[in-house]
Simulated assay, not measured.
Amino acid sequence: ASIGDGCQFSNGRSFAAWLGLTPLNRSSGGKERLGRISKMGDRYIRRLLVLGMTSRSKQIRHRPDQFDPWFSEILERKPAKLAAVAMANKTARIIWAVLTREQDYKVRTA
């Protein structure tokens, strides 16, 4: 309800940034440094997304074959909380796409 139709955001990244799910950019001199998430924006929606992805990460650990391989790969490479925020970021971008295109979500099959 607080998002509306999502057209006020130019892309999914700007929507995720509005939620505070994108890393802070502290780059200088050609050296790219991405820090912690900004935590700007709607605190309640961000909390729901991260909590939901934390729960989903526990499900992925038990049944990795039932989920997108990207999720299980990021869980292997990153700590659990960092992976949950990354998955919340990706989910926010999917939400933006669904809102702006006014279509149902379609799961991609490999």
Rank of each mutant, 00 (worst) to 15 (best):
S2F: 07
D5G: 14
D5A: 15
G6A: 09
C7S: 12
Q8R: 15
S10I: 12
N11F: 07
G12D: 05
A16Q: 03
A16N: 01
G20Q: 07
N25Y: 06
R26F: 14
G29R: 12
G29M: 11
K31V: 15
R33I: 08
G35Y: 15
R36L: 09
I37R: 05
K39F: 09
G41H: 00
D42S: 10
D42N: 15
R43M: 08
Y44V: 13
R46Q: 05
L48S: 06
L48P: 00
L48Q: 13
L48G: 00
L51K: 04
L51A: 13
M53W: 02
M53E: 07
T54Y: 00
R56N: 09
S57F: 10
K58S: 10
Q59V: 08
I60D: 02
H62C: 09
R63Y: 12
P64N: 08
Q66F: 04
D68T: 03
W70V: 11
W70R: 14
W70H: 14
I74Q: 07
I74H: 04
L75S: 01
E76P: 00
K78S: 10
P79Y: 01
A80R: 12
K81R: 14
K81E: 04
K81G: 07
L82H: 08
V85L: 06
K90Y: 09
A92I: 07
L99G: 04
E102S: 10
Q103V: 15
D104A: 14
D104Y: 05
K106T: 15
T109L: 12
A110C: 03
